[in-house]
Design a binder for these strands. Structure first.
Length: 269
DNA sequence: CAATCGTCCTGCGGGC
DNA sequence: TGCCCGCAGGACGATT
């Protein structure tokens, strides 16, 4: 499932490849993927628009168009934005085809159909601060997390309205890095542990961006259909039942806030 | 205020 | 071999 590092990887690839291109036509193949307006209007409104730049906020890809509108894309779990050559035919899971005047195409694919595309004003996004935003830092992180002292830490890290970008994989990895049990309440965390979580998130997600993200099973692919190379560095995600890489104890899996969570019951206090 | 549960959707793996 | 069941999961709304 694409989280901040995976979405950032795609953002950089789109930034390098479609900025300056003009959309010639758009075909929506799966109507429910378009939010807010009708399919015909969506296709019509995008035709002729030039791509100004590609932004990102949390897990959202922001395709900024000439004028002041933005094409917002959420990949949810299995969504993909694929740059394909002129003439490439859509596949089974292709929901939207964007054709540029150059002939290049951008496909929005989504096997499980949870994601969406939407034309909107960015100011209307209801999202917390992106984890890698300029205004984020240790102080801000402690302030934000501290404001929700009654919550369990792991689901809180995934709350997009507080901090945007962290999903199920990196929240688990950060708790492991900080030796914090994901079930802990924020109010029970020491200043040092909060610092460890911030550092853990920062290190893990920066490394993941360098490795082009994490691909688990048939999940994430970048804009060129390639897998991320960070998966092999994941220490707890997907390793339930296996030995903890720090203390050798058997990693356990629990459902926390309805999400599968793997951790070490021995060294994550 | 916080936690849980159902919902959307499809592929896949386990069990028999 | 093949079928059925249930799980996976981001975000949101409703409920406890």
């Amino acid at each position: 499932m694409p989280e901040l590092p995976e979405v950032e990887t795609i953002r950089r690839q789109l930034q390098a490849n479609i900025v300056g291109q003009t959309i010639k036509s758009v075909q929506v193949l799966y109507s429910k993927v378009v939010q807010g307006i009708g399919v015909k209007k969506f296709e019509h409104d995008l035709a002729g628009k030039k791509i100004k730049e590609i932004g990102r906020r949390g897990k959202l890809i922001l395709i900024r168009l000439a004028g002041d509108k933005t094409l917002v894309v959420h990949l949810k779990m299995t969504g993909r934005l694929l740059l394909v050559k002129k003439g490439t035919a859509p596949e089974k899971h292709t929901g939207v085809v964007f054709v540029f005047k150059s002939g290049k195409q951008l496909f929005y694919d989504d096997m499980r159909r949870f994601g969406f595309v939407k034309i909107m004003d960015e100011a209307k996004l209801k999202l917390g601060i992106d984890f890698f935003d300029q205004s984020m830092g240790l102080k801000k992180f402690k302030e934000l997390v501290g404001s929700r002292s009654g919550s369990q830490i792991k689901p809180l890290l995934m709350d997009q309205s507080l901090i945007a970008g962290i999903g199920n994989i990196y929240a688990q990895e950060a708790c492991f890095a900080a030796k914090v049990n994901p079930l802990r309440k924020v109010s029970s965390l020491s200043d040092k542990e909060l610092g460890g979580l911030y550092k853990g998130l920062s290190v893990v997600m920066k490394s993941a961006i360098k490795a082009g993200g994490s691909s688990v099973d048939a999940g994430y692919r970048d804009a060129f259909s390639r897998q991320g190379r960070f998966s092999s560095f994941l220490k707890v995600y997907g390793r339930a039942g296996k030995a903890c890489l720090r203390c050798k104890a058997k990693l356990v899996k629990k459902s926390i806030g309805g999400r599968g969570t793997v951790f070490c019951g021995k060294c994550q206090k």
